[in-house]
């Protein structure tokens, strides 16, 4: 008996619609396969499918057959000054060719140096050197994949003294020079605004909405430190009211785009995520209504 195997070109084209989607994580696999719940699209972490076979792929095959799917990478470490990780890129390329996701994204960040990986997203200074370096990496990846990628703004706890320009300027330049799109994580923006005293109005005013291809919405945690409070981007809670307001403002200024409810740990039932998605959907819908 042959276990199911698929190859390239086996899936119907499913672009990610301008609707609210849900992050698909392992605790929900069985439920999604069994019940085929209503969801406009799913997003998965690319690296969870870097094994050769077994359950992860069997799940992804079924999900990709029935829903639009977006691949969100967390480990390519594009900002790292180590050589571009060819093995990782090869796996991502194979995965992308096999499943033909509607969107592929990564982070404006680095997670490795000297061949060691931190399993965390570390901040880049917003300098010409870092921009030039990151642009080179993004171009190489887009070339290998044969498609543009979306790059996500990071949540940061450290501001680097070397940074010379505001983050939205850096992101605009990244998109402008490489043709990549932007994934605006509204929760990350909110977290950074609290952690570094940023003006979110100013940020949204500076960011070029034409580059925005996706939004992320997630929860955060407050942490008390000796000099005050910071927010940590934990992805383990409902989207806060303040982030919902910021999302409203973002969509109004930058336009509607697919919006993802990103919940990674302490996962509730899928229904909770679907309720969050419905709220995001309403924001997108009213923006579409206003625009028409």
């Amino acid at each position: 008996m042959t276990q199911s195997m698929t190859g390239p070109g086996q899936y119907a084209r499913r672009p990610i619609p301008v609707r609210a989607g849900v992050g698909l994580r392992e605790p929900h696999y069985d439920h999604v396969l069994e019940h085929r719940p209503a969801a406009a699209w799913f997003e998965v972490h690319s690296e969870n499918f870097f094994g050769a076979g077994g359950r992860p792929h069997r799940v992804l095959e079924r999900v990709r057959r029935d829903y639009p799917v977006s691949f969100h990478g967390v480990g390519l470490s594009l900002g790292s000054t180590d050589p571009l990780n060819r093995d990782h890129l090869r796996r991502l390329t194979e995965l992308t060719k096999r499943y033909e996701p509607g969107l592929v994204s990564e982070h404006v960040s680095w997670s490795s140096v000297g061949g060691m990986f931190s399993n965390d997203l570390l901040p880049l200074p917003y300098t010409e050197e870092a921009l030039s370096h990151l642009c080179g990496r993004v171009l190489a990846v887009q070339d290998a994949l044969g498609r543009p990628i979306a790059m996500e703004n990071p949540s940061t706890y450290l501001e680097l003294t070397a940074s010379a320009v505001p983050e939205p300027e850096f992101l605009n330049a990244l998109a402008g020079r490489t043709g990549c799109t932007l994934l605006l994580d509204v929760n990350n923006l909110f977290v950074n605004a609290v952690n570094h005293g940023w003006d979110t109005d100013r940020y949204l005013g500076l960011l070029d909405g034409r580059h925005v291809a996706e939004y992320h919405l997630a929860g955060h945690t407050r942490r008390r430190l000796s000099g005050g409070e910071i927010l940590i981007d934990t992805h383990n809670a409902p989207v806060s009211d303040a982030v919902w307001s910021l999302f409203d403002a973002a969509v109004e200024r930058l336009g509607p785009a697919p919006a993802l409810i990103e919940w990674d740990s302490d996962l509730p039932e899928l229904g909770v995520l679907q309720t969050e998605a419905a709220r995001a959907e309403a924001v997108l819908e009213s923006a579409r209504v206003l625009a028409s």
Binding site: S118, N119, D120, L122, Y157, L158, E159, L160, T161, A162, N195, H196, G197, R223, L225, S226, G227, G228, E229, I230, I232
Partner: peptide, 21 residues
């Protein structure tokens, strides 16, 4: 010298990354 601080000192902010790691 690499890291700016605002409020909580830089060491504690670095600890956020270290803890997550």
């Amino acid at each position: 010298g690499l890291v700016r601080g605002k409020g909580p000192v830089a060491a504690e902010r670095l600890a956020v990354h270290r803890n997550h790691f």
